[in-house]
Design a protein around this nucleic acid. Structure first.
Length: 216
DNA sequence: TACCAGGTCCTCG
DNA sequence: CGAGGACATGGT
């Protein structure tokens, strides 16, 4: 995937340094845009937002709805998502003015604050907390659920149950949570779907090494 | 052509 | 609570 503007996605711990406020915002907006949507479509929208130079809280809160919709059209659900972005930007401005200030408080409280916003559900809230401000909170997505059940680690289907499972079995480290999430995504795109786990199946490999990291 | 993609909200039983 | 439908675009 082509880097967006000057922003090189920081997927790995070795690249984690202090993110700029604009990078944090891009990650947060990306989290909203990618709701039930292919990342490639999101990239196009982020590129347009960058070129229009509106990736700032003040500009996003002031930009005309129709203009915003035209910029993010490629990511789908553009009427809903444009509204979600505005709600998010306005909330940020009302509480500290920067994502760093806003999202650095007590974790539970901050998370509930995000969840109270229209358009921000558990996955989006947790993705923003983990990836934009490196808070230690486990992100659950459709892949996490599907593969965890397939491996036999869980039977639950609820977001909270699954999140608690991982958070109670892993050291409370944001980089580790991010790593697991990244591996689930990667596995989902590569594994074979045969019923029994075949030898050499990446899922079997992940299961073995994953269990080693997890507390029993 | 049909189906899918890293969700969320709303409504109804 | 849990299930079902709506929301929209671009790729295969």
């Amino acid at each position: 995937m082509t880097p967006i503007g000057e922003f090189v996605p920081r997927y790995r711990p070795e690249f984690w340094g202090a993110l700029s406020e604009r990078e944090r915002l891009e990650i947060a907006i990306g989290a909203i845009l990618t709701q039930n949507t292919n990342w490639g479509n999101v990239c196009v929208a982020l590129e347009r937002l960058n070129r229009a130079q509106v990736l700032e809280l003040e500009k996003l809160s002031k930009i005309k709805l129709q203009k915003l919709q035209s910029l993010i059209r490629s990511s789908g659900y553009f009427r809903q998502k444009s509204r979600k972005i505005k709600v998010f930007a306005e909330a940020a401005l009302n509480r500290g003015g920067s994502l760093k200030n806003w999202l650095s408080g007590p974790l539970e409280e901050t998370r509930n604050d995000l969840l109270s916003l229209w358009g921000i559900g558990p996955e989006t809230a947790d993705s923003i907390l983990l990836y934009a401000v490196q808070r230690p909170i486990f992100v659950v997505d459709a892949y996490t659920l599907r593969i965890s059940r397939r491996i036999g680690w869980v039977r639950e289907t609820s977001y909270d149950k699954l999140q608690k499972f991982f958070e109670s079995h892993l050291p409370k480290k944001s980089f580790l949570y991010a790593e697991f999430h990244a591996l689930f995504v990667s596995l989902a795109k590569n594994h074979c779907r045969t019923k029994p786990l075949c030898a050499g199946c990446p899922i079997a490999s992940f299961c073995a090494t994953g269990l080693r990291v997890m507390k029993t």
